[in-house]
């Protein structure tokens, strides 16, 4: 009985943590390239609404995911042009991108509030793996997007640390002037990072509207984009640690629902505060231990070649 409850909780931790995995890993790619994208929340909302709309009209989940990723990447392109090409302040541009994404998704999603999606991602238990006691129900009786995240995390980690383009992206984020002098195309690398981050944020949004809580509501991400950004700091820009952190946060979020489900007396508002408070607490502990743990050296700094001379 208790084991069953714990397993169910762990399974819902994975399910709740998956959008954070996508969004945080995407943000890591952007930040490793040197661009601090505070627009994650907005990009997630755009992904959520566009994926939902396409699913309603076409009943094609693959197309819905593709459109969600493309739409969020298109919004990220706005930030990329403003901050990389035009050198605008990354923080204010990212914050505004969130406002823009919230407005755009609310505008487009208005007619879709309250209607169910005709198609959703349902759990697909994997043969053999899904039957492994303990591990199976937690990890391998999930939907396809969750399985995709299992592949994505090690893939992004390996790409960043063991491939030539990954090395180039890190160099652009640590020291853009140096990367440029060595013949790397800093702008192209940073665009790639930001657009990848945008596409993954879109995927995170579509996961919410098509798998986790399949429906469209205004501001349905409720701050998960911000939690993902905090997670990046917690993970010291490492995708593997980000995934572990995401499931931890998912566990905290799921805990609230579990307590409500078993009839706890704590008002739900306090339980819903948990993920934010937990994020804050973790952020404090991480920064207390070391002031700048693993921050890419040029994070947040625009780069222009001809700015210095002598």
């Amino acid at each position: 009985m208790t084991v069953h409850v714990v397993l169910a909780w762990l399974a819902s931790a994975v399910a709740a943590g998956t959008p954070l995995v996508f969004a945080a890993v995407g943000e890591i790619v952007a930040e490793r390239g040197g661009v601090f994208n505070l627009g994650v929340e907005g990009m997630m909302l755009v992904g959520a609404v566009s994926g939902f709309i396409v699913a309603v009209h076409t009943r094609d989940l693959a197309l819905a995911i593709a459109v969600a990723m493309g739409a969020a990447a298109a919004v990220a392109l706005l930030l990329a042009v403003l901050t990389i090409t035009l050198g605008a302040d990354q923080a204010v541009t990212g914050l505004t991108l969130t406002l823009f994404g919230a407005g755009l998704s609310s505008f487009l999603g208005k007619p879709y509030i309250g209607i169910p999606s005709p198609v959703v991602f349902r759990p697909v238990p994997l043969p053999v793996l899904g039957d492994v006691p303990g591990l199976g129900p937690v990890l391998f009786q999930q939907n396809l997007l969750v399985y995709a995240s299992y592949l994505l995390v090690p893939a992004v980690w390996a790409a960043l640390s063991h491939t030539r383009p990954g090395l180039a992206l890190r160099a652009a984020g640590e020291d853009a002037a140096t990367a440029d002098a060595l013949g790397l195309n800093v702008a192209a690398l940073r665009y790639t990072g930001v657009l990848t981050g945008g596409a993954l944020a879109g995927l995170a949004g579509a996961y919410l509207s098509l798998a986790y809580t399949p429906a469209w509501t205004d501001n349905m991400t409720s701050g998960q984009g911000w939690i993902a950004i905090a997670l990046v700091i917690f993970a010291t820009w490492n995708p593997l640690r980000a995934a572990a952190g995401a499931y931890l946060f998912g566990g905290v979020e799921a805990l609230g629902f579990r307590i409500q489900a078993v009839g706890g007396t704590t008002p739900s508002y306090f339980l819903r505060m948990l993920p934010y408070l937990f994020t804050l607490g973790v952020l404090l502990v991480v920064t207390m231990r070391s002031r700048r743990p693993g921050v890419p050296g040029n994070l947040g700094r625009p780069y222009f070649r001809e700015e210095r001379y002598g």
């Binding site: 706005l78 403003l82 035009l86 050198g87 605008a88 302040d89 204010v92 541009t93 505004t96 991108l97 406002l99 823009f100 919230a102 407005g103 755009l104 609310s106 505008f107 208005k110």
Partner: peptide, 21 residues
């Protein structure tokens, strides 16, 4: 939808950023 107001606020900032450049 009234959300057009948030979009316009964001667009004003974006285009002013372009102008600043």
């Amino acid at each position: 939808p009234a959300a057009i107001a948030s979009m316009l606020q964001a667009l004003v900032l974006f285009s002013v950023l372009v102008g600043d450049f």
